[in-house]
Amino acid sequence: MAFEGLSDKLSAAFKRLRAKGKLSESDIKEAMREVRLALLEADVSYKVAKDFVAQVSEKAIGAQVLESLTPAQQVIKIVNEELTALMGVSEVRLKSPKRPPAVVMMCGLQGAGKTTHSAKLANMLKKQGHRPLLVACDIYRPAAIEQLKVVGAKANTPVFEMGTASPVQIAKKALAHARDYGNDYVILDTAGRLHIDEQLMGELKDIKSTVEPSDILLVVDSMTGQDAVNVAKSFDDALGIDGVILTKLDGDTRGGAALSVRAVTGKPIKFVGMGEKLDDLEPFYPDRMASRILGMGDVLTLIEKA
């Protein structure tokens, strides 16, 4: 890749500095220009990057340069720690309400990976000994129901569908069905929609008020650019999401959308999608995500050893 690592750039910026002493304001300013650029190249939202840099600058100014580290490494360490902290904690569990079944509602933009990840969650729950039910609430996309049936069969999970009946009715009936058949998790696969589509956002609100999901999960494509903040904010404002699934991280995207989404919603990223197969579902690791966004996995292991 053409991208020159942040650590190289910082090292270059700090060439004239000695390894000891304190970081001055102008040192930090110079370094933070590079950090900001790195964040933007990773698709972190413009405003989020700006806020982050301002916040970290304050912490870094006057920081003692540790004896074992160069100033460049010192800055990276601070930036990485702050970024990791912002990413939240690893929280892979779905909520379990007092009265089962737990209802998980998947939502997000078109093509983000909702249907695939509905099946991945079902697959995971099955392996944990649960009895999930998949529900086809996407009545719009061509062959959406068929797709859910195919992946449902692969996950050995029944699929509840009512053709093109209203999604609210489907969700409601599915819940009753789950109670009758002893399913302890109900996973609603909804249609992809734009966050500015008032009519379809209204549909999700109606489903929410009808079946009161225990987890409303926003499915976000990790390749998303600057629009991630608008999307995340709109869905969260409309529905009050409970968590995020970040998909397609098996690609080579730096995944700055993860930071944007965290920053505007404060909701945990619960899972990441690492492929098209049902087993390609992993917990979210804040530290890995931070170094991925900064584009410097190796440097961090070096620093850790230092």
């Binding site: 890749m1 698709d43 933009l109 494509d221 390749m223 998303t224 629009d227 995207t253 730096r254």
Partner: peptide, 11 residues
């Protein structure tokens, strides 16, 4: 290309 995609579209 999905217009929602960021810099990864270059890759």
């Amino acid at each position: 290309l999905d217009a929602t995609t960021g810099q990864n579209a270059l890759n």
